[in-house]
Amino acid sequence: MDRPAATVASGRLDPVVLATKALSVWYGSTLALREITIAIPRNKITALIGPSGCGKSTLLRCFNRMNDLIQGARMKGDVTFDGELISGEIDPVVLRRRIGMVFQKPNPFPKSIYNNVAWGARINGYRGDMDDLVERSLRRAALWDEVKNKLHHSGLDLSGGQQQRLCIARTLAVEPEVILMDEPCSALDPISTARVEDLMDDLKNDYTIVIVTHNMQQARRVSDMTACLMLDEAASDGHRTGILAEFSPTDLLFTNPKDPRTEAYITGRIG
């Protein structure tokens, strides 16, 4: 597998995996995010929090160029991945293999559990032992014991929480370097949520995770760094734009927020 120099060279890894510089995003003519500058650390979990509509999903989708699929979406500013510019003329298909994504609503393919996991690896030309890869990925996603006897049943026959872990397994099977998660637990019950959180903690050693969440406790529990986005109050035309209010280590942000808007948000006075 061709990994970029930054991750192959042992020892002296750049501690920053993903970074944006003055990144603005428009949908059509409305500005959704203004001049975000952030650096996501390697092998850490970074949480994105903030009120609804402040552009958390939008920011997340800039990292794997998912916004390219939306007609009228446009970005300005730099996004870099392992030091390489990925906001310009690059092939998003290659990028998305290295930066996986888990969505808010579990979205397994209407195929068997086995084929759900194997699908991404197959289209990316995986040459090794597929059975082995499927088992490894399902084990990694803490789902193997529940599905090992029904690998050829449809992925849609699983419960919501199992489906979400299947989606995580499917992402892991492609062996990405970063995993983006957009509210991965919002459709899950507390027990499934706890399992996914344990899983994230376990994955942290090998992957960099960026997670969007509305659940303050979850952000505190799982993340190392937290970015709080806010809606700009100064916007004149009634449309409100997302900005980055604060980005600090999670302990610090929750115990001693520097920005008054962050404080208001985490104590439940906005949002």
Binding site: V94, R96, F103
Partner: peptide
């Protein structure tokens, strides 16, 4: 989106 997200 799931498929694009896997690099399809």
């Amino acid at each position: 989106e799931a498929a694009y997200g896997l690099g399809a």
